[in-house]
Write a protein that binds this DNA or RNA. Structure first.
Lengths: 242, 242
DNA sequence: AACAGAAGGTGGGACATCCAATATTGTTTG
DNA sequence: CAAACAATATTGGATGTCCCACCTTCTGTT
C-alpha cells in the first residue's frame, strides 16, 4: 500500500482519523482505477491493508455506503457503487422534521432551493426536449388526472412528472437532487399536512405547466412552476400554524 | 422503548436493518423532543435500548454523524448536531474525481447545477441585500484583487464572495449546498487543472459581478454570473482533454 | 440435462477487552 | 483563600475473536 496505513499511527482527533480512513479507501479505489461495479477487496483484506481493525474499517465502509460510494452485498462482496443519494435524503428528511417542530424554516428553505432549480432550468430543458420526452411528460399529467378523478393520491406520478421535465438536460446530479428534495418534501408533507390537498387542483396545476412547455413559452412555464411552488409553500406554512 | 428493539428480530436484508437502526435513533431524538445541541444517551445505553450490539450501533452512529444528524465528541458524549454537509462534499468529490478519469461528465453537471442556483437566485438575493452585506461582498473582491496582485491564490476569498452573495436569502440549505459544490469543484480543479488559472482575470470577473449587483441590475448580474460559470466549464473541459 | 444439496467464502453482528480524550473532583501549594 | 496541578470517573475509540446469515459455486444424484 502506498499512502495508506498511516491512519492508525496518526494522533489526530478521532473524527479526523475516521475521515482519513474513508479517504484512504476512496484513494485505493482511484489508485486501482476501479469503476462503478468493480469489486473491492474483502473486509479482512482491506483491514489488513489499511492497518486498522475490521470493526473500525466497517464503520468507515458503512459511511461510504451511505454516501453512495460503495455498495455492500451480504455474502457476496463490496463494489464501487453507482450514484446514490438516499442517505442525503434521510439526513435532510430528519432535519426537516426536526425544524418543523419549531419554526419549519428548513422545510421552506428546501422548497426555495427546489424552486430555484426547477424554474431556473426549465428553459434549458425545453430547448433540448424531444417530442417523445414531451409526450412522456403529458402521460404523467394524464395519469395524475385519472388518479385524481378516482380520488386516489398520485405520489409516484407527481414525482415522475418533475423527473421527466428535466430528463432532457441529461444531468444525473440534478435529477438526483430533485428526487431527494421531492422525497423529503413528501415525507414532511405526510408528517404534518396529511391528505388535505385538493387532488384535482394539483393535477390541473401540472397540466397548465405542461401546456406552457408544449407551447414552447419559456417564461410562462417558469411562471407557472413558480406558482406551483407558491402553493406548496402555502401548504407548509398552513401546516406549521396548525 | 416504544418502536425500537425490533431491528434485531426482523429478518430483513442487512441493508434495511442498518437503515432501520438509523431511523430508530432519529425517531428517538424526535420522540424525546431533543433539539440541536441536546445530549444523546451514551453508546452503551443506546445499544441496550435499541437491542443491538455496541459495534452495530456505532456503525449507524457514524453514518448519522456523516449525515450531520449527530455530533460525537470523544470522552464527552453525543449530541444532536447542527446542519453539516461535509460528508456530502466528500461523496460528491469522490464521484467527481471518479468521473474525471473517464469523461468528466459529473464534474460538468455539478457546475450546471451551481450555475442554475446562483444565476437563478441572485435576483432575489439582491432584493433583500443590505448595504452592509453589499460592502462585505466588495471586501471579498478587494481581498481577491490584492492576493492576485501579490501572485497568491485566493481560495478562501473566492468561496467567501459567493457565500456572502447569497447570505441575504437566509437560506442555510442553499448556503450549504453552494459550499459543497464549491468545495468539490475546488478539489477537482486542484486534481487536474493545477494552478494554470489567470488570477487577475478571475478577480476581475468577480469585480464585474459585484458592480452589477451594486448597480441593482438583476439581469446584468445574472448574465455576468453565467459568464463566470462558462469560464469554469471551459477550464474543466480543457483539463479533461489534457 | 436438471435439479438439490453441500461447501466455501463473504459480509453481519455481538462481546469482551483495552486505549484515549474529556470533564470533574480532589489535592496540593502559593 | 485561591490558583494550579493531579487523580479519577465517564465517555467514546479501537481491536480481536467468535459465531451467524447470505450468496455463489460446485457437485452429485435423479
Amino acid at each position: 500500500m502506498t499512502t495508506s496505513g498511516f491512519a492508525s499511527q496518526a494522533r489526530f482527533s478521532a473524527q479526523a482519523r475516521l475521515r482519513a480512513l474513508q479517504a484512504d479507501i476512496m484513494d485505493l479505489i482511484l489508485e486501482r482505477d476501479l469503476e462503478a461495479g468493480d469489486p473491492l477487496p474483502t473486509e479482512n483484506e482491506l483491514a489488513l491493508a489499511l492497518g486498522v481493525g475490521r470493526n473500525t474499517l466497517r464503520e468507515s465502509l458503512k459511511v461510504l455506503q451511505a454516501l453512495g460510494v460503495v455498495e455492500i452485498r451480504h455474502g457476496f462482496g463490496m463494489f464501487v457503487a453507482p450514484s446514490n443519494f438516499d442517505a442525503l435524503a434521510d439526513g435532510l428528511t430528519f432535519r426537516g422534521r426536526l425544524s418543523l417542530r419549531h419554526k419549519g424554516g428548513e422545510a421552506l428553505e428546501l422548497v426555495d432551493v427546489r424552486q430555484a432549480l426547477e424554474s431556473g432550468l426549465i428553459g434549458s430543458a425545453m430547448d433540448t426536449m424531444t417530442s417523445g420526452q414531451l409526450a412522456a411528460v403529458e402521460e404523467s399529467v394524464i395519469r395524475m388526472e385519472e388518479l385524481a378523478a378516482a380520488g386516489e393520491t398520485f405520489v409516484e406520478a407527481d414525482s415522475e412528472f418533475h423527473r421527466r421535465l428535466f430528463e432532457p438536460l441529461n444531468n444525473t446530479l440534478l435529477i438526483s437532487l430533485l428526487a431527494v428534495f421531492w422525497k423529503v418534501y413528501r415525507q414532511i408533507h405526510l408528517e404534518v399536512g396529511g391528505g388535505t390537498e385538493d387532488l384535482t387542483e394539483t393535477a390541473a396545476v401540472h397540466r397548465r405547466i405542461y401546456e406552457a412547455v408544449a407551447q414552447g413559452d419559456r417564461s410562462l412555464a417558469a411562471e407557472r412552476l413558480n406558482h406551483h411552488f407558491d402553493g406548496i409553500r402555502n401548504r407548509i406554512t398552513d401546516a406549521i400554524n396548525e
